[in-house]
Design a protein around this nucleic acid. Structure first.
Lengths: 150, 150
DNA sequence: TGCTATGTAGGAATCATTCCTGTCTAGCAA
DNA sequence: TTGCTAGACAGGAATGATTCCTACATAGCA
């Protein structure tokens, strides 16, 4: 989704996030893609427009935006963290081959909850569902290399 | 669950995993706890019986056991990896305060699947559901320190 | 019992992330 | 508009979980 600079500024102010050139660029990059980039992906992306950008600033900004609820962190395995500019309730479909992450929108999944017995006194705030498998290209690649899935 | 040495040996052989003292100790420790320990937790635990144990061997062994399907890796955020000796299909309830992980056994959760449209050609092999919240002690601790949840 | 592929220990290396520090600037107040 | 100050930025150093490397040890077969 494409965002105007003034939309970004308004969102930042609504969430009490100070507006800076760096933050706007990082947030814009994240909202405009559906690819769930890593901190380093964003660093390389944003550095093209702002060569002085520090990797540190990317991490710091991602922390600020996450705490403000403007972005979400997505974790696949214990690989590097990946980020999602879409904070509406949704889940993920993850390719074990190439690591791509697709969004899954499903009201039934959003409504899942534990019974009281299962919750064991927890105050459950949220849940997350991940589907793991192989995307079309990785299935094809696998077939070309070896007929057996490891 | 308590396991005899011969049970462990039989499982290892069934999964074509070479039997060594170190592996047996690491696997036994993992199956006997429900606390989903990290590699380093296991290292410290097992080192008490086998002082020569190397942290490296723990990592290597966990890799071998995971590839053999004898254990599972559980990931919470991008914290260090944690391991689960229970490979039967189940899900997790995670405390955002203290990091403890409880098992959730629920046939309905086990049966979740994506519609063809949602799956977008993926060959979906498995899914995982995580519930995040605060356990009873962390809720109490929070109340004592500050009335506001962050 | 001996051989050999595989496992183990320990140290070095990696690399995502965090910490530190000096400079800069957004956003408020005068 | 200008000045002030808390908070943000850049860049380098530090951290810490994990992996790599290598020489020695051993499981398990012949």
């Amino acid at each position: 989704m494409k965002l105007d600079p003034q939309d970004i500024e308004a969102r930042f102010r609504r969430h009490a996030v100070r507006v800076t050139r760096q933050r706007a660029a990082i947030y814009a990059a994240l909202v405009e893609t559906t690819s769930h980039p890593s901190a380093d992906d964003l660093y390389r992306l944003v550095k093209r427009q702002q060569p002085m950008m520090s990797r540190n600033t990317v991490y710091y900004t991602l922390g600020v935006l996450r705490n403000a609820g403007l972005i979400r962190e997505v974790n696949v395995g214990h690989d590097m963290a990946r980020y999602d500019g879409n904070v509406s309730l949704h889940h993920h479909l993850i390719c074990l081959g190439c690591g791509q992450i697709l969004d899954v929108l499903d009201e039934d999944l959003n409504r899942l909850q534990l019974s009281n017995g299962q919750a064991r006194g927890f105050d459950v705030l949220r849940h997350r569902v991940e589907f793991h498998g192989y995307c079309v290209s990785c299935q094809q690649a696998e077939r070309n290399v070896s007929p057996r899935r490891k």
